[in-house]
C-alpha cells in the first residue's frame, strides 16, 4: 500500500485521505445484458498479484473518484486519474 497518493486535483496526500472501493475494471453492463454479465459485474472479482486498477475516492479532499493503477506486490503506483475522465465524461 502506498503511503502517499498524488491526487490529480489536490496533489500529494497521505493514504488516510482516501477510501478504496475495489477493482475498477468491471464496467456496469447494459440493463438487459445477460445474467452472466450481471453476475460477473456484481459478484465476481479476480484477485491478481501485480498491476491492478482500483477505484479510490479522495473523501477528505476533492471527493472525486479516482482510478489508481498500482502494483499490489511492489506497491508502485503507476497512475492516478479521475474516474470520470477515464470514462470520458463531462465534469
Amino acid at each position: 500500500m502506498a503511503s502517499l497518493i498524488s491526487c490529480p486535483h489536490c496533489g500529494v496526500r497521505p493514504k488516510e485521505e482516501f477510501s478504496i472501493r475495489g477493482d475498477a475494471t468491471p464496467v456496469r453492463p447494459a440493463p438487459m445484458a445477460s445474467d452472466e454479465a450481471w453476475n460477473d459485474y456484481v459478484h465476481v472479482r479476480a484477485n491478481p498479484r501485480g498491476r491492478i486498477r482500483e477505484h479510490w475516492q479522495h473523501v477528505a479532499g476533492c471527493r472525486r473518484w479516482l482510478v489508481v493503477e498500482r502494483d499490489n506486490f511492489t506497491h508502485e503506483v503507476f497512475s492516478v486519474t479521475d474516474a470520470a475522465a477515464a470514462r470520458g465524461g463531462a465534469r
Binding site: C10, R13, E16, E17, V59, A60, G61, C62, R63
Partner: peptide, 10 residues
C-alpha cells in the same frame, strides 16, 4: 487553498 485531512476532520 485545498481541502485536506486535519487529524480526523476534513
Amino acid at each position: 487553498a485545498a481541502t485536506m485531512l486535519c487529524n480526523h476532520l476534513s
